[in-house]
C-alpha cells in the first residue's frame, strides 16, 4: 500500500516537473491534485490507526472503569456489610448470653430445692421425721412440683431462643461470602491493570452485568432505606395476602 503510494507520488512528481518545464498549466494542476490526494490517503490511514488505538484504549479502560466502580460503590457497600456482620454477631452473642443469665438461676433454684427435699425425704424414710415436719415437707413438695414444670418450660423456651440466635452464622456467612467474591474481583482487576500497565494487553470479554430482579442477595443491609425490600415477617405476610395468598 505504502510502496504503491510512493510510486504514484514519484510518477506524479516527475509528471509535475515535466509539465512545469513545458508550462502546461492544466497538467500541473492535475498532477498537484494527484499528489494532494495521495497525501490525504496517508492521512486517512493515520487517522484510522489512531481510531483503532483509541478504541483499544477505550476497551481496556473498561477494566479501569470497573475498578472505579468497585472503589466508589462496592467498597463502601462492603464496609456496611462487614459492619452488619459485627452488629449481627454482637446481637446474637448478647442474646445468647442474656438467655444464659436468665436460665442459670432457674436451674440453680431447682437444684437447691431438690437437694432440700431430698434431704427431708431421706429423713422421712429413716423415720426421723415428726408429723409437723412431714406436713411441712409435703407442703414443700406441693409447691416444688409445679415449679419444676414451670422452670423446665422456661428453660426449654430459653434454650430454643439460644438455638434460634445461632442463625447469625447463616446470615453473616452469606454476607461474608459476598465480601470474599468482591475481594477476588478486586484482585482480578488489579492483576489486569498491572498487565495493561506492562503493555501486555488482553482483550477480555466485557462482563454483561444485567440486573436480575430475583437474584439471591442474602440479608439486606439497611433494608429500611429500600422501599423494594420488606422489613419483617408481617410485611411478607401482607404482600402475600395482597397476592391472594
Amino acid at each position: 500500500m505504502e510502496s504503491n503510494n510512493k510510486t504514484i507520488q514519484l510518477e506524479a512528481a516527475r509528471a509535475l516537473v515535466t509539465a512545469l518545464e513545458a508550462d502546461d498549466v492544466s497538467v500541473v494542476e492535475h498532477q498537484l491534485a494527484i499528489l494532494t490526494q495521495s497525501q490525504e490517503s496517508e492521512l486517512f490511514q493515520e487517522v484510522g490507526k489512531l481510531t483503532r488505538e483509541l478504541h483499544e484504549a477505550m476497551s481496556n479502560f473498561n477494566v479501569d472503569s470497573r475498578l472505579v466502580d468497585l472503589t466508589e460503590n462496592d467498597m463502601p457497600n462492603t464496609r456496611e456489610r462487614l459492619n452488619y456482620v459485627i452488629t449481627t454477631t454482637e446481637d446474637a452473642a448478647h442474646k445468647t448470653l442474656g438467655y444464659i443469665d436468665q436460665t442459670l438461676p432457674l436451674a440453680s433454684e431447682l437444684k437447691l430445692t431438690a437437694e432440700k427435699i431430698d434431704e427431708s425425704w431421706h429423713r422421712f424414710r429413716m423415720r426421723e421425721m415428726n408429723a409437723d415436719e412431714f406436713r411441712s415437707l409435703s407442703k414443700e413438695i406441693e409447691v416444688y412440683l409445679p415449679e419444676v414444670k414451670q422452670h423446665s418450660e422456661q428453660i426449654h423456651a430459653n434454650l430454643s431462643e439460644m438455638m434460634l440466635a445461632q442463625g447469625f452464622q447463616d446470615l453473616t456467612g452469606q454476607v461474608i461470602r459476598q465480601v470474599i467474591d468482591l475481594v477476588a474481583e478486586v484482585e482480578d482487576n488489579l492483576v489486569r491493570l498491572v498487565k495493561i500497565a506492562g503493555q501486555h494487553v488482553e482483550n477480555k470479554p466485557k462482563d454483561n452485568k444485567e440486573v436480575d430482579p430475583i437474584k439471591a442477595e442474602g440479608p439486606q443491609i439497611n433494608a429500611g432505606d429500600n422501599p423494594n425490600v420488606v422489613n419483617d415477617q408481617d410485611e411478607v405476610d401482607d404482600l402475600l395476602s395482597s397476592l391472594g395468598f
Binding site: D170, L171, P219, Q220, L240, L243
Partner: peptide
Amino acid sequence: TAETKREQIITAA
C-alpha cells in the same frame, strides 16, 4: 430465607 425483595416474594408465590 433472608431474601426480602418484593419481586422475590412475588416470584416465589
